Simulated scan of single mutants.
Amino acid sequence: MSSPADMTGGPELNHPRVIVTRPEREAMAWAQALRALGVDSETLPLIEIAGLSEASGLVQAWQAGAHHLAVMFVSANAVRFFMAAQPEGLAVPNCRAWSTGPGTRAALLASGWPEGLIDSPDEKAAQFDSEALWTLVAGQVQAAVAEAVRAQPSVLIVRGADAQGQVAGRDWLAQQLESEGLQVFQAVAYVRQAPELTPEQCQRAHQAMTDGSWWLFSSSEAAQHLLQACPDLPLSQARALATHPRIAQRLLASGWGRVDTVPAGLAAQAESIKSLA
């Protein structure tokens, strides 16, 4: 978790204080960006990202990559682990790359995926999710199906799995693609698991239930991990921010006392947070 020393050297910070719960790499970058925009923030990563013990599935996905209409990446981590498994001698697939948000798009650009082949919601989009992506790519999909003569068009979805190896995340986009007549293949690139919180982190979590802090969740899985690590938290007294209505609903159903929805985009999110009463 970040310390007060992390807050120096930037603009004057405004309350309320926000606890960023993303995986550590993303949490640190997000908290730093919020502080630069005047939002008092710290990190308590509640999702741990780990590589696969055996990556043959990713190698096979690479070998078939050029045959797909598109490769859809669910997160920046999906991009990083997929690109890390690139077999020697194989180029980046010459197909569309789909992402649901600017972080994933930035990871694709950093990995060398041609900018002209990337489809992603605008940074000012109201939501970064499968539905927002679908509005951009539905035309591609329908055109590919209409033009197909021999082979059925396909999309590869690169995503994470939970600690038990089960595919993590929603299947809405896969179902949508299949209903349009596409084949959908899945490739697991990494594992999302619960971190082991230190006694100090659990103590801070208890304090944050009642000290006016706002917990920022971009995944309901992070909230589940918090309760697994600290099962006796007084949630009814706590305040949470959710970046999507589905996450907000799950938090309320779990017993969080107050849950507000904030934009997923950084700048709009910072403004929303600063307006909280």
Rank of each mutant, 00 (worst) to 15 (best):
M1V: 13
S2F: 07
P4A: 14
D6Y: 10
T8F: 08
E12H: 13
N14H: 15
V18T: 04
T21K: 07
R25F: 09
M28Q: 12
A31Y: 07
A31V: 07
S41A: 15
I47V: 15
A50Q: 13
L52P: 11
S53K: 05
S56H: 10
S56Y: 00
G57P: 00
L58I: 07
Q60D: 14
G65C: 11
A66W: 13
L69E: 06
M72F: 12
F73E: 04
V74G: 12
N77S: 11
F82S: 07
A84D: 11
L90C: 08
P93K: 04
R96H: 15
W98H: 12
S99W: 00
S99V: 00
S99P: 00
T100L: 04
A106N: 12
P114A: 14
G116Y: 10
L117H: 05
D119W: 01
P121W: 03
K124R: 11
D129F: 01
E131A: 09
A138H: 05
A138D: 05
V145W: 03
V145I: 09
A146V: 02
A148N: 11
S154G: 14
I157E: 03
I157N: 09
D162Y: 15
V167R: 15
Q175S: 06
L177R: 04
L177T: 07
V191H: 05
T198W: 05
P199Y: 09
Q203N: 05
Q203F: 06
R204T: 12
A205R: 09
L216K: 03
S218G: 11
S236I: 09
A242V: 02
R250Y: 05
L251E: 01
D260V: 08
L266K: 02
A268I: 01
Q269E: 10
S272P: 02
I273Q: 01
I273E: 02
K274W: 04
